[in-house]
Amino acid sequence: MQGKTMISLLLASVILVFSGCSAADGNNTDVTGSKHEKEIFAMDTIMKLTAWGASGEQALEEAEAEIRRLDDLLSTGKSTSEVSAINRSGGSTQLSDEVRFLAERSLDIYEATDGAFDMTIYPIMKLWGFTGDDPACPSDDSIERTLALCGSDKVKLDNSGMVLSEGQSIDLGGIAKGYTGMRIADIFRKNGIGSGIVSLGGNVQCIGGNPSGKDFNCAVADPAAPHSSYLGFLKVNDEAVVTSGGYERYFEDDGVTYHHIMDPRTGRPAKSGLSSVTVVCRDGTTADGLSTACFVMGAEKSAELWRSGSYSFELVLFTDDGRLLVTEGLSERFSPDGDRGFEIIRKE
């Protein structure tokens, strides 16, 4: 009798302890509201949207519709898009507000970066085959000829519309994903989502912070192994984080690697000594354009642009020779992975 009592007590205590554990686990996932996720293939990439909160599903549906709408409006690959129409006609007298806004922003970044970001680089991208499936090295001659047509300084944009110069075509893809991220953030907020995260092919926009109350932990990909290794981790809240690196798209020819980020001054893949640039900025559109521009400009000019205060942003730079450079504003929010060290870029 005593033995039986003891055994049942023993069982009861063990069951109690374990049921206590699983109840605690259940609570952890529920306190902050339900998590809603969606994966969307658009703008030639994969987009992952996560929203926490009761109206998450509604927010995700509206976000998907917005992504499709913007893809249809801005894609150079869709003949029905407004951008394709502009490229066919060499301009437009009936610009939509959004295309005008994005073109103005592109021109603005073009000027601030001495042409390192250029929406008219599209013919060069086409020449290298980066707009299709089979990129290859063009001849020096064809590069020179095509490059002569490029240059945002030859584009006329005013109240009457946009006029491209002979042979020019534009691609707003350099800032389109950043802009899309911001539009999704607006949709999330409108739906009362205080915590969300959007990754548009590695182009990150976060809404608020982690539902646990902390900032989001955003890893920065290591160019040597972008999907499994990291340069470090950034604490971010209500910001965009955009990384540009030559590892995103490239091809090899005769043992040489050619990546897809073109230097508008040479018409060839940028060789600035940087293998990756990450921009942290409240404004996703700016972050997107600046990450490309800084990759083209190199560490020194990027630091100069940061110091100039033309834009409010922070940087994580990784050089070809393995140095990790972080601007002052991130020094408290960045932790390098493993035993990597990093240098701080100061305002001086």
Binding site: S22, D25, S212, K214, N217, C218, V220, Y230, V242, G245
Partner: peptide
């Protein structure tokens, strides 16, 4: 589904790159 609250640098919310 049995996720817990262990928070460390290994817990990544998102990857930029």
């Amino acid at each position: 589904s049995g996720g817990n609250n262990h928070s460390s640098s290994a817990d990544i919310d998102v990857v930029a790159g």
